[in-house]
Design a protein around this nucleic acid. Structure first.
Lengths: 246, 246
DNA sequence: AAGTGGTCTAGACCACGGT
DNA sequence: CCGTGGTCTAGACCACTTA
């Protein structure tokens, strides 16, 4: 059962990608779309709001909506696991556990996972790749209440997120990401097959359940020649924030 | 004249920051908020949708909305206006033009600005800082139709965006950003006072008007110890990508 | 079973943009 | 001026969560 406004959004998206509405062209008026699809104006507005949030179209009061880009790129609009993202890009995600061990929670672990300092926590170092080529080193710390389920996952499993969902029903609902850059350390360099001190794109993230309970936090380091992030923003609608360090 | 749904969003935002609704707590039901503010349910939904987009609250069908974070998100912070962002964070933005010259449009310039290759374009190299400390090297190429106005701007002007708006009425309405990491070159290193080859956070962006016409594009390199980016995202209840293939 | 959010309708008025 | 998108209302039904 798909909502009507989603069907309409999908149809408009396809039409834009098909260049039926080329870049710079106007979309039909809301009332026009409403009669065309046999729905009320409110439903049409739900649909076009989704496209606007994706940066596909722009709008101003009084003027027709304008097609901005026929993009297919993966943005941060939706939270997705590495495996899901790779699949959406038509690539194959791989992954293997390089090391895993229990360590007492550091002050940082405790703060990010809302757990008492010193709690034994599962630390996992994973190397992940696209079509066999290594692109990402992932250092993840799991909350104590989920680590048994994580340990039960095959070390070569391509999508831990999906595995955990199937096994335990756990949903990764929210993600908070901090993006910066860092020099490759010795281990990063070896695993990613780059020179030491070469620049890596780092994402430190905390993932939580629907009710905001932290599940894991991770330090992810990407080869910047293999992966980048794209964000679209508009006046009054800005999903990305720049934050000063310290 | 502020829309009622924005007033309500602002009130709820303040209440969350005041920890009237602490992290993990439930927000009142939509109908409850509707009667409290004397508006219809639709208006309440517009308000809470804004908070959800900011990552302040989460929601699922059937369950009350949950407070996720008391973050003080400067949601009006403009990614493309360094000066406005700095001001919102309570910092002082500085900027000076290091070099500027006209160069024929490269293939990349032509593609990004939708202009013919070879067109003489204004290239500007700016060094920008926070509270006097250099944090960002900006290499901007302007579309030919705006460069006269850019040349008229004071080289030490802190906010070019605002200046251009005042002078010409030009609105930077949309931005498309690609984020990765890169080694500091000799010039970057000198200007930012870091070692050569040290990692920098790079943002390549294209800024457009309301109707999608490109105004400028820029290669911005940040000191990662001074500036990072944060993104909050959620698993959308709009299964846009969840539509079955075919 | 009751409560809640998600979806949808069929109206209405206003502010703004373009002609 | 007319057409457009932005805002708002007062209903309705359904899917889901929770107790």
């Amino acid at each position: 059962m798909t909502a009507r406004h989603e069907q309409i959004a999908a149809e408009l998206r396809r039409a834009i990608h098909r260049e039926e509405y080329p870049v710079g062209a106007h979309l039909p008026a809301e009332t026009e779309l409403a009669t065309r699809y046999g729905v009320s104006r409110g439903t049409v507005r739900q649909a076009v709001a989704a496209l606007a949030a994706e940066g596909l179209i722009g709008s101003r009061q009084g003027a027709r909506r304008v097609v901005l880009a026929p993009r297919r790129s993966q943005s941060f609009a939706e939270l997705r696991s590495f495996a899901q993202w790779a699949q959406a890009m038509g690539r194959t995600a791989t992954g293997r556990v390089v090391a895993h061990e229990y360590r007492p929670a550091t002050a940082e672990d405790a703060a990010r996972l809302h757990l008492p300092q010193g709690t034994p926590l599962l630390n996992v170092l994973r190397l992940r790749g696209l079509d066999g080529e290594p692109v990402l080193v992932e250092r993840t710390v799991y909350a104590d209440w989920i680590s048994p389920a994580v340990e039960a996952v095959d070390p070569d499993c391509a999508s831990v997120t999906q595995r955990l969902y199937e096994d335990t029903g756990l949903v990764f609902a929210h993600g908070e990401h901090v993006i910066d850059a860092i020099s490759a350390g010795a281990r990063d360099a070896t695993l990613l097959a780059v020179r030491r001190t070469s620049p890596l794109l780092r994402v430190r993230r905390v993932t939580t359940t629907h009710d905001g309970r932290p599940v894991e936090w991770s330090d992810d380091r990407y080869r910047p020649d293999a992966v980048s992030f794209t964000v679209h923003n508009a006046i009054g609608h800005n999903p990305l924030m720049r934050t000063p360090a310290g």
